[in-house]
Design a binder for these strands. Structure first.
Length: 573
RNA sequence: GCACCCGUAGCUCAAUUGGAUAGAGCAUCGGUCUACGGAACCGAAGGUUAGAGGUUCGAAUCCUCUCGGGUGUACCA
């Protein structure tokens, strides 16, 4: 049950004469301050102006009409015209009791209409090891996919691999001119990465020869040159295997991994169709679409006849629309491609794809402490593998010192879960468009607003059940009455029931940090409860059962929420 | 030059999109313990939301200008 949605509909029915129901509903929201209750309706002030009435009187009138039974008593009119709602304890108790046996924690209700969403994320270039820059897209995209799935939407996770671009031309050049056969034998991906870096360095150093040679290799590859195609086919499995290993460690999966190469056969048709419809035109030898005459056009065929990523992206939209008929396509990509997507979406709309909601889920570049793009001291970008290893090693130190009683295998497992959780959470708990300052300390932190804090709260709850020799399933089956006489109990209860509305908001805003904020708040409320309300030594059997139930619901919510962030929990840590 | 993004506590970030006294974490200082796990809890201090105007019941949020930073800007992806 989505409490906010329910309240919105109830207040919607009480919209004053002449007011906009939608606007009035949207003005219902959780209270920022508990002293104003649990939820508040703020629509009266805005309406008062358009209707030419006194906002407090309007609020008083709504108060009389609105029917909050049995969730709450009549709302309270406060300030200039706020309507404050406080959920009834009996209602909260009953709702929690229902949640107790519900594996979906209240998400399985009728809810909003289900849609199909394609999430295009991670999308690394193959043949280059993944680095910290790939983390954001991978982790944010995975989390958004999980959130939409949890809400019952149909999700297509698509890894749009960069397996066809000019970086392959550079590798081909490197292979033909500088390969180390033994190194390739030993570790193909490392050798290919070395060749790529070598080519890049030469080009950056002003070597026009390498630049042209690389481009020529790319053209040959695209033109079905047998040798280059053969090399591509040889390299790809190694590259994909290395990527798959990384995704497995991260716990990220895809439904499809259709790279740029997949769309290659469709590109000439795309250009032809756009030209035939008069959307594309020739300019300076290239085929382009002018989205805005004053600005640079969107190029779909270069003057040398080759296609570029804009063409591929259009073919991709066409394919996705045909294959899945999505309502929404999310592109989880660095904000520096904002202009590209703006143009791409405009061209797609002109082309007829005006029903699908195309969204660029942009995020900031990762910077070092010096505010320049993040590098190690050696000048290389930090590899994702070594970042994860570092985080896990850091976690291992803490586990070793705090829990020497766990056997080494289990400590290793806990360290992996805690370390990866820390890294993912550091990325997900902040979702600003502005650039992101990479900070080892923050990445590896395990105090405060971190995944570790949430995992710790979970482990403490499991510990209660272990110590009390109680099985959570038994508590769930008993469905004890939930007593909310202590403020900490009530605070916890009011948060547990918010999960569905939080997920809806996170999905609407495309912001996983809404989930992290919620979970941190929940864990905080639990810590307070844990300090102030003894569970196993509660003063009565009824109270003990009630608190066990509250603890179990909190644990299940934490586990569920962390899972939506791609983060695991452990029973002991 | 033009376009877009950003500027919030010492640092890293929130603020449910115009709501009530701008909140967290880290760092600093002080407290809590025979504990159902101290990877915790409580408290203090820290702010003219870059600056100046404007819009209105109400602005970190919207508008204008100024200052500062970032990104993009015709054949890389």
């Amino acid at each position: 049950m989505n409490v906010l949605e329910k309240l919105r509909s109830v207040f919607g029915d009480a919209t004053p004469e002449g007011g906009d129901r939608q606007v009035f509903m949207a003005a219902v929201r959780p209270s920022g301050d508990p002293k104003f209750g649990d939820y508040q309706a703020n629509g009266c002030m805005a309406l008062a102006k358009t209707l030419g009435k006194n906002p407090r009187e309007l609020a008083a009138a709504v108060r009389e009409v609105v029917d909050l039974e049995p969730m709450a008593d009549k709302p309270e009119v406060a300030g200039p015209g706020f309507l404050n709602v406080r959920l009834r304890d009996e209602w909260l108790s009953r709702t929690l009791a229902e949640l107790l046996g519900d594996a979906s924690l209240g998400l399985s209700g009728p809810g909003t209409t289900k849609k199909t969403v394609v999430v295009d994320f991670s999308s690394p270039n193959v043949a280059k090891p993944m680095h910290v820059g790939h983390l954001r897209s991978t982790v944010i995209g995975d989390s958004l996919a999980r959130i939409f799935e949890a809400l019952g939407h149909r999700v297509v996770r698509d890894n749009h691999l960069g397996d066809w671009g000019s970086q392959f031309g550079m590798i081909l050049w490197g292979w033909k001119n500088a390969r180390d056969a033994a190194a390739y034998e030993a570790d193909p991906v490392a050798e290919l990465a070395r060749l790529y870096r070598l080519a890049q360095e030469r080009i950056r150093g002003g070597d026009k020869g390498v630049e042209e040679a690389g481009r020529a290799e790319t053209v040959k590859l695209h033109a079905a040159d047998p040798e280059n195609r053969e090399l591509w086919r040889r390299f790809m499995p190694h590259c994909l295997k290395a990527l798959a290993a990384m995704y497995q460690r991260l716990g990220v999966r895809f439904d499809v991994e259709l790279g740029e190469s997949f769309y290659d056969p469709m590109l000439s048709d795309v250009v032809e169709d756009l030209s035939k419809r008069g959307i594309a035109e020739e300019s300076e030898g290239a085929v382009v679409v002018f989205v805005d005459r004053k600005k640079a056009p969107f190029i779909i065929r270069k003057s040398d006849g080759a296609f570029n990523y804009g063409t591929t992206d259009l073919a991709t939209i066409q394919y996705r629309d045909k294959t899945w008929g999505p309502d929404q396509i999310l592109y989880v990509v660095d904000h520096r491609q904002g202009d590209h997507f703006k143009q791409l979406f405009a061209v797609a709309r002109a082309w007829g794809y005006d029903k699908v909601d195309l969204q660029h889920v942009a995020f900031g570049t990762i910077l070092g402490a010096d505010r320049k793009p993040f590098k190690t001291k050696q000048g290389d970008v930090v590899g994702l593998e070594s970042l994860l290893d570092e985080a896990v090693a850091e976690a291992r130190k803490v586990v070793d010192s705090n829990s020497p009683d766990l056997d080494p295998d289990e400590r290793a497992r806990v360290a992996e879960v805690v370390g990866l959780g820390a890294v993912k959470y550091a990325d997900l708990s902040q979702n600003r468009i502005s650039d992101y300052v990479f900070d080892w300390q923050k990445m590896l932190a395990m105090n405060g607003n971190t995944a570790t804090y949430l995992q710790y709260a979970y482990a403490r709850i499991q510990s209660i059940f272990r110590r009390g020799e109680v099985r959570p399933e038994d508590v769930r089956r008993r469905r004890p009455a939930i007593l909310l006489s202590h403020p900490a109990e009530r605070g916890l209860a009011a948060r547990v029931v918010r999960l569905p509305e939080v997920l809806e908001l996170a999905a609407a805003e495309l912001k996983p940090n809404i989930v992290t904020d919620y979970l941190f708040d929940l864990a905080n409320a639990f810590s307070k409860f844990f300090e102030e309300c003894p569970v196993l030594k509660a003063e009565s059997a009824e109270r003990r059962d009630s608190r066990l139930a509250l603890a179990d619901l909190t644990a299940e919510t934490l586990k569920f929420g962390l899972n939506l962030l791609g983060i695991d929990v452990v029973d002991r840590m």
